[in-house]
């Protein structure tokens, strides 16, 4: 029982951070109707940005690098959206669906190779937020992961408040539910697209910066988190905010319990991601819309 509970604790701690990254992806999808195939690379970018900031300004507390990393990624996202995705939404691209896939894949390769050129293939690790571990019930959690999880939870709460209570949040929901009607009431959909993309990739980078002290950063570090995010948003229902949070927690739990109870402990960690994919396959088989998936309007 103790073992079970400690696995659950670890699962929830990771799940919250997964949810943060997936929320960014689902936000972009629900507003732009584009799958951002460079989402994992923004996660990677967040990690490198925080590493770069902390190795340049050595006096800075490592926690301060997190919002800065998110901000840098968000600005890159805004610029990318305006330059490459906006023409598509203005109807200036002939085959928008194929274009969206290719351009975000292109961005993904570009960012990965840029990181390789700038930082090299060797792993980097920014300094810890806090040293040591914290005892939570029966389980020791590294202070870094606990910090990352608490901050993710705070950020998720803040985002939910913004999306449900502020004008900008309600306008984002309006665009995701009926783009034409949003234009009728005078909301500029192009601006909402840019905002959603910036915010979405900013969240991925924030997740990356939060986890960077716990896991090493290499140029292709974003691959697994991005696959995980796709799984989460399909699980939760494409475009659903609650869905991505619930999906994140579920994948966190499944990975932790799956690895914890796998008969061969020497291989358990390698299969971690696979347990999430098993759930993914089951959802696709039995409830392809996901938990909160809505029918298209």
């Amino acid at each position: 029982m103790k073992y079970f509970l400690s696995l659950c604790t670890t699962g929830v701690i990771m799940g919250v951070i997964y949810a943060l990254m997936a929320l960014g992806l689902t936000l972009i999808f629900s507003i732009l109707r584009v799958i951002n195939f460079a989402h994992g690379e923004f996660y990677m970018l967040g990690g490198y940005a925080s590493y770069f900031i902390l190795s340049t300004f050595t006096g800075l507390h490592p926690l301060l690098a997190v919002p800065l990393a998110g901000l840098i990624a968000a600005l890159i996202g805004l610029a990318f959206e305006i330059a490459f995705l906006r023409p598509m939404h203005q109807g200036r691209i002939e085959r928008p669906d194929e274009y969206a896939i290719l351009i975000t894949f292109g961005l993904s390769f570009f960012l990965m190779n840029l990181a390789l050129a700038v930082f090299g293939p060797y792993p980097h690790r920014p300094p810890s937020f806090f040293q040591g571990a914290v005892r939570l019930g029966f389980v020791n959690v590294s202070a870094d992961r606990l910090t990352a999880s608490i901050l993710s939870l705070a950020l998720l709460t803040l985002l939910l408040l913004i999306i449900n209570k502020t004008w900008i949040g309600i306008a984002l929901q309006a665009v995701s539910q009926n783009k034409d009607a949003a234009a009728v009431v005078g909301i500029n959909p192009l601006r909402m697209n840019t905002l959603a993309f910036g915010l979405g990739v900013g969240l991925a980078a924030t997740a990356g910066a939060l986890l960077a002290p716990s896991f090493l950063i290499v140029p292709d570090v974003g691959a697994v988190p991005s696959i995980r995010s796709y799984v989460i948003i399909v699980l939760g229902g494409m475009g659903s905010i609650q869905g991505s949070i619930l999906g994140g927690l579920l994948i966190g739990l499944v990975e932790s319990l799956g690895a914890g109870y796998f008969p061969d402990p020497s291989r358990a960690l390698n299969y971690k991601t696979a347990f999430g994919l098993v759930i993914f396959a089951l959802v696709l088989l039995f409830r392809p819309r996901g938990f909160f998936g809505r029918k298209e309007v």
Binding site: Q173, D180, V185, I187
Partner: peptide, 20 residues
Amino acid sequence: HSSVFPHLSVENNLRLGAWT
């Protein structure tokens, strides 16, 4: 075609009319 925001409350739908 119907231009309500189906998953927003009636009040929020009306409020969005005041977006400008």
